[in-house]
Amino acid sequence: MAVAHVLAEQAQVVYVGSVGGMEERIVVRESQLPFRALPAAAVRGRGPLGAVRALFTLARGVIVAGQLLDQERPAAILGTGGYVCVPLFVAAKLRRIPTMIYLPDVVPGLAVRLLSRIADLTAVNVSDALPRLGLHEGDRRALVTGYPVRSELFTANREMARAAFGIRSDQTVLLVYGGSRGARSINRAIAALLPTLLPLCTIIHVCGREGDQEWLAETAARLEPALRERYLLFPYLESGQTRSMTAALAAADVAVCRSGASTLAELPAVGLPAVLVPYPYVHQDENADYLVQRGAALKVADDAMLGDGAPEAGPLAQAVRQLLIDHEMRRQMAVRSRALARPEAAQTLAAALMELATRSST
Rank of each mutant, 00 (worst) to 15 (best):
A255Q: 00
N287P: 09
A265T: 02
P280V: 10
V282E: 13
A313T: 15
R258P: 04
Q284C: 11
A301S: 14
Y290A: 10
C257Y: 00
L264M: 12
A296M: 09
A334M: 00
H283Y: 14
A269Q: 08
A313F: 02
K299W: 08
D308L: 14
A317I: 03
A319P: 07
A313L: 15
S262I: 07
V320S: 09
E286S: 14
A296Y: 02
R258N: 08
A248N: 03
D253A: 07
N287Q: 08
A310I: 09
R294F: 01
K299E: 13
V270K: 07
V256A: 00
L316C: 06
A339E: 14
R321G: 13
A255Y: 00
E312V: 05
L291M: 07
A288R: 08
P278S: 10
V282L: 06
G307I: 02
A296H: 04
V292D: 07
A334S: 15
D308G: 12
P311F: 10
D326W: 06
V270C: 09
A334H: 01
T263V: 15
A288H: 10
L249S: 04
V277D: 10
V320C: 06
P278M: 09
R330S: 01
V335I: 15
R294G: 11
E286H: 12
A339H: 10
S337E: 12
L306K: 13
R294C: 05
Q293N: 15
A304G: 06
A269D: 07
G295A: 08
M305E: 11
R338Q: 13
A288S: 10
N287L: 07
P280F: 00
S262G: 13
M329H: 03
M333S: 05
L276Y: 14
E328A: 15
L316R: 03
A252N: 01
G314Q: 02
Q318P: 00
Q318L: 13
S262W: 01
R330N: 00
E286Y: 06
L324E: 03
P280T: 10
A296Q: 04
G314S: 07
E266G: 06
D308H: 13
A252T: 04
Y281N: 11
Q322F: 00
D302H: 13
D302G: 08
A317Q: 08
A317P: 02
Q332P: 00
E312Y: 05
A248H: 06
P311R: 05
